[in-house]
């Protein structure tokens, strides 16, 4: 054993096979699918106005970047601002539901019931109230994303066990300490479950809002491209939206790991 120094193993550069093994299997599946798509389109000579090949879409993203990027920024702004507003409304609301009998019995059931209203159906109404500016987009993003945050935060704050409260009181903890040192940390994994669910919904909200009435944003670009039968341009926008959604979700997952180092996240719960 001693004749083989450890350093030789460490210093050796990873082989191609080792590098390939580091890439997650799902990425390989995706690459295979894209290749299949590309080959099928070329082999069957599918026209571009029905299904463009991935290489054509990539070329479109690059050549159309000067329009895609500014519009993507607009959509991103709507998503982030709406999401932030939703958090600012949802978390204090959840706290009030947990601490106030009135909120829990007289207000919370109505919030839950209101979720049966399809929010997309309200969108045109918001347009006539708030006009074509950014306001209706923000409102729709808030409406879609705030519910899972409220539900999960309420669940999380209620997850404190009676034993924890007995313990707290035996230490002479006041209400403030019980909230900060017991209830809130206990609720955090639930809150993040809700936030992650809300990221996907906030993206949907922004795009739907732009479909209904907008003069900028990726949703608007998709509509215009659709009207011109420019399928490649539509795909280019869709890919950008997806990337945005994924990055947002990834950001939240990273934040969660930083904020809750003691455990894996709980299952996503609550519906939008």
């Amino acid at each position: 054993m001693a004749s083989v120094p450890d350093t030789t193993y460490i210093a050796r550069r990873p082989s191609l096979k080792q590098l390939a093994e580091r890439i997650p299997p799902a990425v390989w599946t995706l690459i295979a699918l894209l290749l299949f798509w590309e080959l099928m389109v070329r082999w069957r000579e599918i026209p571009q106005y029905i299904l463009p090949a991935p290489s054509v879409i990539l070329a479109e993203i690059i050549s159309y970047w000067h329009r895609l990027w500014p519009n993507a920024l607009v959509t991103m702004g709507e998503i982030l601002f709406g999401f932030a507003c939703a958090v600012c409304i949802a978390v204090p609301l959840a706290v009030s539901v947990v601490y106030s009998q009135f909120m829990a019995r007289a207000v919370f059931p109505i919030i839950v019931m209101s979720q049966t209203i399809p929010k997309v159906a309200i969108a045109p109404l918001l347009l006539s109230w708030f006009g074509y500016g950014i306001t209706p987009k923000i409102v729709i993003v808030i409406m879609l994303s705030f519910f899972p945050i409220v539900i999960n935060t309420v669940m999380g704050l209620r997850a404190t066990t009676p034993e924890m409260l007995h313990l707290a009181r035996s230490m002479g903890a006041n209400g403030w300490q019980i909230f900060w040192k017991f209830r809130l940390p206990k609720a955090l994994p639930f809150v993040f479950g809700g936030l992650k669910l809300a990221t996907a919904l906030s993206v949907i909200g922004a795009i739907v809002a732009e479909f209904i009435g907008a003069d900028k944003g990726l949703g608007y670009l998709i509509l215009i491209a659709g009207a011109n039968f420019d399928i490649a341009r539509q795909f280019a926008s869709i890919i950008l939206i997806s990337l945005m959604g994924m990055s947002f979700f990834g950001l939240l997952t990273w934040l969660e790991r930083v904020a809750i180092p003691w455990r894996e996240s709980v299952e996503l719960s609550g519906k939008g």
């Binding site: 066990t161 313990l167 035996s170 002479g172 455990r263």
Partner: peptide
């Protein structure tokens, strides 16, 4: 509630976000 005592329950009631040492120190923090 009398706080001039210590309580141990059947469940350990440790706070999962705190290390062993920090769980013990909770008593002093509160």
């Amino acid at each position: 509630p009398n706080s001039d005592l210590g309580i141990v329950f059947q469940q350990d009631v440790l706070l999962e976000w705190r290390s062993a040492l920090d769980n013990v120190l909770l008593q002093a923090e509160i």
